[in-house]
């Protein structure tokens, strides 16, 4: 039973260069879809490009971008967005998500910085999201990011996120781990945050592991197993918004593929449980 009309269904796994050999035997029975950062595969030929095509021929893909810098005050890199569109078209990928963040200021910095939660920033970001959607001729799906500080904050993260979704009229990639990390880092209730999001805008979900820097400071490393509190939050999300396609992210400290697949199987299990619960409710 598909609960929404998303091209993504089920449980997915991020495809990383360091895992390509191990994942070459993977089937779509084990993993429903894969996800990559387009920046790491665009204009890439040779053995990596060939390896990537072998995966795109066998799996449904989502693209999760890193360099769009939707919140930046640098001009939008229109040529880059056009290249992303060509890449998505070439590999027949309809899902493209990016971070509600900025990663450049007079040049790329290759990691994510927190946009100040202000009215002007909402307008700025929403305008750029619309511009990107026009070029892509696809929806741009925006993801909540993990943060360690809130510079220039004039409203809550929730209000800021809701306003951007509304103003840009776009979909959301809900990163459940990021909500958990931020709820600890900024002392708010993670379940309340998730419950307050509009179900109809949530396209798919991310889940990942994090690192406990201090009791009140977690770092979103994608380098550990998913924590029990985050699994709980995923179950809460399914109950609150319905089952959505969910992807496991793992970028560092890569374990054997079997360990990742066992986490993917947890996703499948929780999805099935939630579907049963929703049916019998």
């Amino acid at each position: 039973m598909a609960l929404n009309d998303s091209p993504l269904q089920g449980a997915g796994l991020g495809l990383r260069r360091g895992m390509m050999d191990e994942m070459s035997e993977l089937t779509s029975k084990q993993v429903d879809f894969l996800e990559v950062a387009p920046e790491n595969w665009m204009h890439v030929g040779g053995r990596l490009g060939k390896g990537f095509r072998e995966f795109t021929e066998r799996f449904t893909f989502a693209c999760h971008g890193l360099s769009l810098s939707i919140g930046s005050t640098d001009p939008l890199d229109v040529e880059f967005v056009k290249s992303v569109k060509s890449f998505l078209d070439l590999h027949n990928i309809s899902t493209y998500s990016e971070h509600l963040s900025y990663c450049s200021d007079q040049g790329h910095m290759y990691d994510l910085m927190p946009i100040p939660f202000t009215q002007d920033a909402i307008k700025h970001v929403a305008g750029r999201i619309k511009q990107v959607q026009d070029i892509l001729e696809r929806p741009l799906i925006i993801e909540n990011v993990s943060t360690y500080a809130h510079p220039g904050k004039q409203m809550s993260e929730l209000d800021f996120t809701l306003a951007v979704l509304e103003e840009a009229d776009c979909k959301m990639l809900l990163d459940v781990n990021n909500v958990y990390v931020n709820s600890v880092n900024h002392n708010y209730d993670a379940k309340q945050f998730i419950s307050a999001l509009p179900s109809q805008r949530i396209e798919y979900l991310h889940i990942a592991g994090h690192f406990d820097e201090a009791e009140d400071l977690l770092v979103d490393t994608h380098g550990d197993d998913v924590k029990p509190q985050v699994w709980d939050l995923l179950k809460h999300t399914y109950l609150q918004h319905g089952v959505r396609a969910t992807l496991l992210e793992r970028d560092f400290n890569l374990p054997p593929i079997e360990e990742l697949l066992s986490e993917v199987n947890f996703i499948k299990q929780y999805q099935a449980e939630a579907l049963n619960g929703l049916r019998t409710a």
Binding site: T73, D105, M109, I115, P116, D120
Partner: peptide, 19 residues
């Protein structure tokens, strides 16, 4: 929003300082 004073800084300036 009413509490946002007229002297609050432009988000662009804060982003610049942060980076």
């Amino acid at each position: 929003l009413d509490n946002v004073s007229e002297t609050t800084l432009d988000f662009k300036q804060i982003q610049k300082e942060f980076s």
